[in-house]
Design a protein around this nucleic acid. Structure first.
Lengths: 195, 195
DNA sequence: TTTTATTGATTGAACGTTCAATAAAAAAAT
DNA sequence: ATTTTTTTATTGAACGTTCAATCAATAAAA
């Protein structure tokens, strides 16, 4: 029963946050969404905070899985192909649906004052930046690679943030297009520097 | 008295949100910060929501003032110079201090489910995008200009978001450097296309 | 004296958590 | 195979807390 209930409650949490925001996503509302009673949340997650943390972990896991899948599907492992896989993974379907997107943004804001969430947030931020820098580093000098990684990380998060705020949600195709155009520019500039 | 109290309470709101987050920024906490009693908030702002909306308006006004000031200080009005003014204005001092940055991010998340804040948010987003597109449009064809504007807007917001989440706060100098490097690339590519 | 500004105790609503009671399932005993 | 016992899963009312808003009382200013 436990794994089933946990999954149901995590999904209900995302749905509730998508519908009414983190502040109004009460335990009763979440429990009703999942078709159970409020008390069960404390039973399986120790309390509301435990459920919220588990929900954020789920979202981060989904994101990493999406990126890993794209990497595995790669024919070559050129720096540019690897970077494209990271970009595409970040705009993977599981990440851009309303519930996941709004839940993530809610956690982003919340993590500023909740150490447990801040830790998860920090690890994920660093991983995105480190991965980007590592692959840029194979194609350009270190200072340029670091700047490129910072810019690309910001653009990905920014596209994602702006998408979460629009009524229609994020257009993943368009977001990929913008980010990949930027990637093309960075690599076009490298080739030019070698001529 | 009214303008003084309003200003005090708005500043106290940002400080409180910076310290404990939007959720725990209660009227009593804000009032104590401002050195007044809780009841005065309803008296001057009609309630807590009114105070929050006024605080967001203040932040957006400060941002627009910063951008306008940079534009006025401009020697020439070339597209690139105008775009640089927008970038610099977005990382102006008043925007990158802890209180303003965290308050803004808190409102960003909150605006997903509060129509009053969403309206302010939407207007500001559109203005940034429209301004960027307008100036890019003077230097490149429309489709490219739109894509460049989307990418630049995302990068600005992303740098800003990532800065708000780091413990040390946003490094404005570094953020400007990254955004301006991207701008240089966009313009370098234009010149190349004309050769 | 009249108007304006401010207080802070009170009120009612809503929240998360707890826990005794109960239902369902599994195991053991007959 | 049937009954009894034990364990596991779940409920929802009750509890204590916290919040924003209210408003009669008071102080200050005009």
């Amino acid at each position: 029963m436990e794994p089933i209930r946990r999954q149901q409650l995590i999904e209900a949490t995302m749905t509730a946050i998508d519908e009414v925001g983190l502040h109004d996503a009460t335990v009763i509302r979440i429990a009703r969404r999942a078709g159970v009673s409020a008390g069960i949340i404390s039973h399986y997650f120790g309390g509301k905070d435990g459920l919220l943390e588990a929900t954020m972990r789920q979202i981060l896991r989904d994101l990493n899985d999406a990126i890993a899948a794209r990497r595995r599907a790669l024919a070559n492992d050129s720096p540019k192909a690897r970077l494209q896989a990271i970009i595409d993974g970040n705009f993977d379907r599981s990440q851009v649906t309303g519930p996941a997107a709004k839940t993530w943004l809610a956690f982003w804001a919340s993590s500023m004052h909740k150490p447990a969430l801040a830790r998860l947030q920090y690890i994920n931020d660093r991983r995105l930046y480190s991965n980007l820098r590592h692959h840029f580093r194979r194609a350009m000098p270190a200072p340029e690679a670091e700047q490129a990684a910072r810019g690309m990380a910001a653009m990905i998060d920014g596209l994602w943030l702006r998408g979460a705020l629009t009524r229609e949600g994020l257009d993943a195709t368009e977001a990929r297009q913008v980010a990949n155009a930027h990637l093309d520019q960075l690599f076009a500039q490298i080739e030019e520097a070698f001529l």
